[in-house]
Amino acid sequence: MNIFRLAGDVSHLVAIIILFLKIWKSKSCAGISGKSQVLFALVFTSRYLDLFTVFISAYNTIMKLVFLVLSYATVYLIYMRFRGSYDSENDSFRVEFLLVPVTGLAFLENYAFTPLEILWTFSIFLEAVAIMPQLFMITKTGEAESITTHYLFFLGLYRALYLANWVWRYHTEGFFDQIAVVSGVVQTIFYCDFFYLYVTRVLRGSGKMSLP
């Protein structure tokens, strides 16, 4: 565990809590892609199955449980509790275009052809593209509430901090996880355009992000 890894986990937790509280307090999921949240719940489900097979540390177990509970709770809020405010018309990204290639790739490229490893690899590749429906929805509606942009900022920052963690671990302990690093780079690159808009418009400008 190093500072980048810890900061990354905290940033990830902050992002998930920001989104959950935004929906819960505003009693609305307008502008939020339910599809992305379902994909994130799927990422955590397929990645954290080792909760039942190995105990790594209290921190590891607790964080995995918190991520699982909050992601499913968020999906529940969107599709059940506040489904009246769910903007399904603008949440129109075809997730099968993500799931099929990611599943295929997980069977081709993995560390071991075992169910747990393939599911773990699937979760790594899926996480890299899981935000696409949300970013697509923002381009379709042409704007995003500032809370949503803060959510996206911390979500994008978390994997960027994981990249720093992997650089650190490579130089200090020779650790290199090719699948996670390559996927993490792709994932972070998808946020670059958003990061630019976030800094130029939300932090400096009007607090609301409206796309050109």
Partner: peptide
Amino acid sequence: DKPTVDKDEL
């Protein structure tokens, strides 16, 4: 061979 994945990471 490839490293076994470090499941410690989230």
